[in-house]
Design a protein around this nucleic acid. Structure first.
Length: 583
DNA sequence: GCCGTTTTCGGCCCGACTGTTTTCAGTCG
């Protein structure tokens, strides 16, 4: 059993215990352990067989036993028993806004409610309002939450969240009463999937800012509106929260609402260790003081807060409690890549296959934007759905690209299109074009577009065999996932990364917002193995060139620097690297 | 359930908002 599976079960145990009304710190211990396991570099089998689980912080005697049982036998008696003792539908109830473990327990104990449907019926008949601790308003809120869940998703892609957030942030910035404004939350941390959008604003007149916010044209519904805080639902079906603080409090509120929750817990712990108290209003010299500005250490920026806690500044993308504290304490936070470090993209399409624009249109656009090069990697013949090129068409395209490049040469420009292919990886890892043709191309990306249902061993073998081909420069969208739409196919990503390390093959960070694949969580491992990243747009139309910013953001989240990313190189050096694997 | 230069028990991050309470519990982030 792999660590992801073990972590998922521990996570579920935590939720089940919450429903049972267990000590919240106990339930958190399970959630913490799950997160710790997910972040492990080593395989869980190794840790168990070498009896080294106990050395991991947050895993004590009880969890050691349970994890060992899970990994060695594939099941866990404690979990099975716990799960059997509660109806499956209770977990769904927890997803409803405003409904937590305590309410679920009462609903189940008093009204035998164990599904959303039953809860809805009970609300409609007025029974819920009669329960102790509930009332008319709670009942109405629950009905609203059920309706909301039916209508909208609770999770959204980063690009959708950003495009909903940007106009609101812009208008807040234009408001005279607003001093400083920022996006916060998981969107600021560049998580690929976000739940809601958070804004932080500093102002002397919070009421005016809040009025302005809830009155924005994009607001469909106001969920809550207090003196310093408001929650709304946007037209896109995304919840957005605004918090207004005084300007000296702004950096603290920004840090606090950027999170992650786990990161914040460690920050506060560090404050306590130094005799301080940290909250969204300040860093206070007394453990007791929670608000008095006179006792707050002045920190005009987030940087100053980290400094006060003996830490190097931690960029928002890294704030996941995934090793950033150790690195920051030792001054080892790297200078992360910026999107402006990128010189071009090595995986893109044109209307020769399933892209929108012609070679000339693509070249003119990316040249205009300041790129130094742009690889044309249209699909190969097996991708019939994408009008993949036959070998003959590809040879024609090589000539056509030569003519476009001649035009740039004649103008005295150094910009170049690079010839290439996104070649399909077929069954058993064979490639869709033969080596003789691949050898004629500047850039070869190998990707899987078919046979998604093969088992993990087969998929892993297919990708490894593709990596072993000396003409393949990089693997494209390694897992095939489409965020919130299609799961990854089964593949042992670490084994593929190992193979790329051995063969000198690069791995793409596909910057299309629906892919963002390879996942940021795996880049530390790849980097440690010496595997280089290529941030690619996988552009199918000119507007997709903007994905480079998103790709760089996710690369930052994976701790990548300019040196780790191939397409930060200028063209002459890039050509040298492209030749390296083939030599 | 975890953890310990305030160690083997008693802590565990912290505050806003809401609704149902008449002083606070539950939920959320």
């Amino acid at each position: 059993m792999d660590k992801e599976h073990v972590a998922a079960i521990l996570q579920e145990i935590g939720v089940l215990l919450e429903l049972k009304g267990e000590n919240p710190f106990k339930t958190r211990a399970y959630a913490n352990a799950a997160r710790t396991l997910e972040g492990l570099e080593e395989s869980i089998e190794t840790l168990v067989s070498e009896n080294r689980l106990g050395g991991i912080k947050g895993i004590g005697e009880a969890l050691q036993q349970k994890i060992t049982e899970l990994v060695t036998t594939g099941r866990l008696e404690y979990y099975e028993t716990l799960k059997a003792s509660l109806p499956a539908g209770l977990m769904d109830l927890l997803d409803l806004q405003g409904v937590g473990p305590k309410k679920v327990k009462v609903l189940h104990d008093k009204l035998a409610i164990d599904s959303v449907d039953k809860l809805e019926a009970a609300c409609l008949s007025g029974k819920v309002a009669e329960l102790a601790g509930f009332g008319e308003k709670t009942q109405a809120k629950i009905l609203e939450a059920i309706a909301f869940r039916k209508q909208f998703a609770s999770r959204h892609r980063l690009d959708e969240a950003l495009s909903a957030a940007t106009p609101i942030l812009e208008s807040l910035r234009g408001l005279p009463e607003a001093t400083r404004c920022s996006l916060a939350g998981s969107a600021r941390r560049c998580k690929e999937i976000i739940g809601d959008i958070d804004f932080v604003v500093s102002s002397r007149e919070p009421a005016k800012v809040l009025d302005f916010f809830v009155g924005q044209p994009g607001v469909r519904q106001i969920l809550a509106r207090g003196e310093t805080k408001a929650s709304v639902v946007l037209e896109e079906g995304i919840q957005a929260d605004l918090r207004v603080v005084s300007d000296p409090e702004f950096p603290f509120a920004l840090a606090y609402f950027t999170g992650s929750k786990e990161h914040n817990i460690v920050m506060r712990q560090r404050a306590i260790e130094r005799g301080f108290r940290l909250n969204e209003y300040g860093l206070f010299q007394s453990q007791k003081e929670t608000r008095d500005p006179a006792l707050c250490l002045p920190c005009p920026t987030e940087e100053a807060i980290f400094q006060a806690l003996d830490l190097q500044f931690i960029p928002p993308e890294l704030r996941e409690d995934a090793g950033e504290f150790l690195a920051a304490a030792e001054g080892r936070i790297p200078r992360l890549i910026e999107w402006t470090d990128l010189h071009g993209s090595l995986h893109n399409h044109t209307n020769w296959s399933d892209g929108s624009e012609t070679l000339d249109q693509v070249a003119a656009h990316v040249h205009e934007l300041g790129c130094d090069y742009w690889a044309i990697t249209d699909h190969s013949k097996s991708s019939v759905q994408a009008r993949g090129l036959t070998p003959e068409r590809l040879r024609e395209q090589i000539l056509a690209i030569g003519r476009v490049n001649q035009g740039f040469k004649d103008e005295g420009s150094d910009f170049r299109l690079l010839t290439g292919s996104e070649v399909d990886i077929l069954a058993e890892g064979r490639l869709d074009f033969d080596d003789e043709l691949l050898a004629q191309l500047d850039v070869v990306v190998a990707s899987i577009h078919s046979g998604f249902s093969h088992n993990e061993a087969e998929m892993t073998r297919r990708l490894i065999r593709a990596a072993e081909n000396r003409w393949v420069h990089m693997l494209g969208h390694l897992t095939g996932r489409l965020l919130l739409k299609r799961e990854s196919y089964a593949v042992n990503q670490r084994a593929v990364i190992d193979a790329c390390a051995e063969t000198g093959t690069w791995i793409e960070l596909n910057a299309s917002p629906q892919r963002l694949d390879l996942d940021w969580r795996l880049w530390s491992y790849a980097r440690k193995k010496g595997v280089k990243c290529v941030i690619n747009c996988d552009a199918h139309r000119n507007a997709h060139v903007g994905y480079l910013t998103l790709g760089a953001a996710v690369a930052r989240k994976g701790w990548l620097t300019r040196e780790d990313v191939i397409n930060t190189l200028p063209l002459p050096q890039l050509r040298r690297e492209l030749a390296r694997k083939r030599s």
